[in-house]
């Protein structure tokens, strides 16, 4: 068992989930409430990683974050290192690649919310921010949690984006999926099997948890 890869994978998944909670929640809320006509464009961009082959996404991210791009140059000048083939590089890729897995469940939760409850709160003199905290969040919580679990699970299994953007550097970019791939390449089937089995059990547990969460719904 590649413990180093496991630790790195959990680290990547946790950071991805935390960042997508911070970015995805306001983005989903904006998508759910905005009346802007060009909104569908943003929705399309958010959903794109869902249909795009991960290698394609990884390839373009590699170009976009590489030393010849503006982002890459600014980053390497300020941080003193380059984004590709680093943990921060695969984290960036993981966050973008997992955007739909977080934003879509959040959006579904917000969109399924009865708008009148929010308006009722406003009419009772409660500010927009307070209304979000006291009405929207408690009622959308199961959906938000489901989105977070899904994001975590999906980023644990991330392969294409990480490989394209991070390669296979032990302790830096070598995650569990890449470790499996590497073992199979080296015809080390026993090690690959061990890691794969861990991921199967993990995924199964995650699905059970998500199912339980989605069934709980609004407390009665």
């Amino acid at each position: 068992m590649d413990w180093q890869a496991l630790r790195l994978t959990l680290q990547l998944a946790s950071c991805t989930t935390a960042l997508l909670f911070a970015i995805g929640l306001p983005l989903a809320y904006w998508l759910a409430t905005s009346h802007w006509r060009g909104k569908f464009l943003v929705e399309a961009v958010v959903t794109l990683p869902l249909v795009l082959p991960p290698t394609v996404l990884g390839f373009y991210l590699l170009l976009a974050l590489g030393p010849h791009s503006l982002v890459g140059r600014v980053y390497s000048e300020t941080a003193g290192s380059s984004l590709p083939f680093s943990f921060w590089g695969i984290l960036t890729g993981s966050v973008i690649g997992n955007l739909p897995f977080a934003v879509r469940p959040f959006l579904a939760a917000f969109a399924g919310m009865d708008r009148r409850l929010i308006e009722a709160s406003w009419c009772l003199g409660v500010s927009r921010a307070e209304t979000f905290r006291r009405v929207t969040l408690p009622l959308c919580w199961p959906g938000i949690l489901a989105g977070l679990v899904l994001t975590f699970a999906h980023s644990v299994g991330e392969f294409g984006v990480v490989l394209m953007l991070g390669g296979n550097i032990p302790g830096v970019t070598r995650t569990l999926s890449i470790s499996i791939y590497d073992n199979v390449q080296a015809l080390n089937y026993a090690a690959a099997n061990q890691t794969a089995l861990v991921l199967v059990v993990f995924s199964f547990i995650v699905l059970c948890v998500t199912h339980a969460l989605s069934r709980r719904g609004v407390p009665t």
Binding site: E119, A120, C123, T220
Partner: peptide, 20 residues
Amino acid sequence: LSPQQRDIGFLFQDYALFPH
């Protein structure tokens, strides 16, 4: 003025009670 600033009471058709 926002609804919060108007000092009104609004009763919605299906009451819009907070279910939680």
